[in-house]
Design a protein around this nucleic acid. Structure first.
Lengths: 110, 110
DNA sequence: CAGACCTACAACCATACGGTTGTATATGCG
DNA sequence: CGCATATACAACCGTATGGTTGTAGGTCTG
């Protein structure tokens, strides 16, 4: 994942309304107004949330008549998950090194 | 992961400096000033970043003499990764349902 | 065509964020 | 003790964010 892109993805995920939109649109397509009906805020606010998600690549939109269908993009979710996996792997590296150190408390590699 | 906690975790990860700090402190402990030396910003700025990470539970601190050692918390990273995995699983659920639909184009369950 | 519906977008507002500088406090060291 | 180091914290500043309302443009339908 490119530098600034990760920023946008995590930023977009840092809001429960947006996470819920991603959830719902990964299950099935929903129009913006269909999404908006379920949140205690204006249509325009939800529209902005969708725009943030689209900007981050977490959802895509396609036209159907007068409505815009929003669909979650699982690839972006996966890329974010892999980035976190990479952090976890780094930690495991430390754990390994610590194990080695503990396993050979006598010093260098002869 | 609790509601507001996920917000904080993803928000904290939405900054490359902070992600780098998490990376480095998952590899090994570093004092705040040791971390600060490698970023093009003031010590206070880095200190704030560490505070954000600590608030999110992505790092912990422990005193050693006059310095504060920062250590990455892999559990929080894992919890965030699992949340993304759950989203992916939801998508897979849709994919399954779509497969079922495509596999039985003749109608309901008789 | 007229009206309802869905979306887009601008303007505005309060608050949060990322950065700065400056000041205060604690610890290690000669 | 006296000084340098390491951290903490407050005040300040410009900009982004999340929300609002209002206006305008497509699109379906009677």
């Amino acid at each position: 994942m490119e530098e600034g892109r990760a920023d946008r993805v995590f930023r977009a995920l840092a809001d429960s309304t947006r996470r819920d939109i991603v959830l719902r649109t990964l299950e099935a397509e929903h129009s913006v107004s269909a999404l908006a009906r379920d949140y205690p805020m204006s249509f325009a606010a939800v529209q902005k949330h969708v725009a943030v998600l689209e900007e981050a690549g977490l959802v895509t939109k396609r036209r159907r008549g007068r409505e815009q269908l929003v669909r979650g993009d699982v690839d972006t979710v996966r890329r974010a998950a892999r980035l976190l996996d990479a952090l976890e792997a780094v930690w495991r590296g430390r754990a390994e090194r610590m194990s080695e150190i503990l396993a050979e408390p006598d010093g260098g590699t002869p």
